[in-house]
Structure formats: C-alpha cells, structure tokens
Amino acid sequence: MNTILQDKWMIIASIELLIILFLLIKLRKVKKTESLDKEILKSKATSINMSDIMNDIHLAPTLYKKLSRACHPDRFAGTNLEITANQLFQEAQLAENNYAKLCDLKKQIEQKLNISIS
C-alpha cells in the first residue's frame, strides 16, 4: 500500500517538475520577446519625414549626376586638388540617395574645388 502511494507521489512530483520546467522555459522566451519589443517600440516611435523621402526619390538622382560630373577625379588628374576631388567623389557616391547630404556636399565641392555647380 505504502509503495503504491509512494509511486503516486513520485509521479505527481515528476509531473510538477515538468510543469515548472515548462513554465521556466516559457518565462525565458517571454523575457527575450520583451527586450525585442523594446527595440521594436523604439523603431515605432521614430518619426519619418516623408518630404525628405520624396526629395531623395525625385531630386537626389539629378543632383548626384551633377556632383559626380563636377568632382570626378579624372577632371583634376595631375593637379593639387586630385586627392580632395577623389575624397568628395567617394562621399557623393555614398550619399547617392540622400538629398540633404548631397546639398551639403555641393557646398563643400564648390568651396574646396573652386567650381560653381548650377
């Protein structure tokens, strides 16, 4: 009789242990999701200026073409400005789709390379 009761208690105890393990695993997953949620919430809170995006879509390609022609390193080959032109050309390539950055670069190019871009 005693052994049967002991067996029953063993079974109940092992089921309880399994439930506790399951809950612990679930809690760990929830914690991971919470940290991920914070990241996601940060991204949700960022405000995007759509006018800038429209400028990037429509105005950036034309300005990039102008700037890449104006400061192309081949135009300054063998002069003192070759390294500067090369650097500015690379910066322009990196900011190909960013109209605001290209506008800043335009000013820099005009100042550093002594040229006017219409």
Binding site: I40, I48, I53, N97
Partner: peptide, 19 residues
Amino acid sequence: SIAQVVLNNQELVRKLISL
C-alpha cells in the same frame, strides 16, 4: 532607384518592419 531610396533609409525600413 525608387526602391533604393527606401531601402537605404534604415530608419524607415526598421519602422516598416516594426509596423
């Protein structure tokens, strides 16, 4: 070229994913 503008804007891409 239209897609590249959106995809190069990482803030926008992250916002789109989060939503």
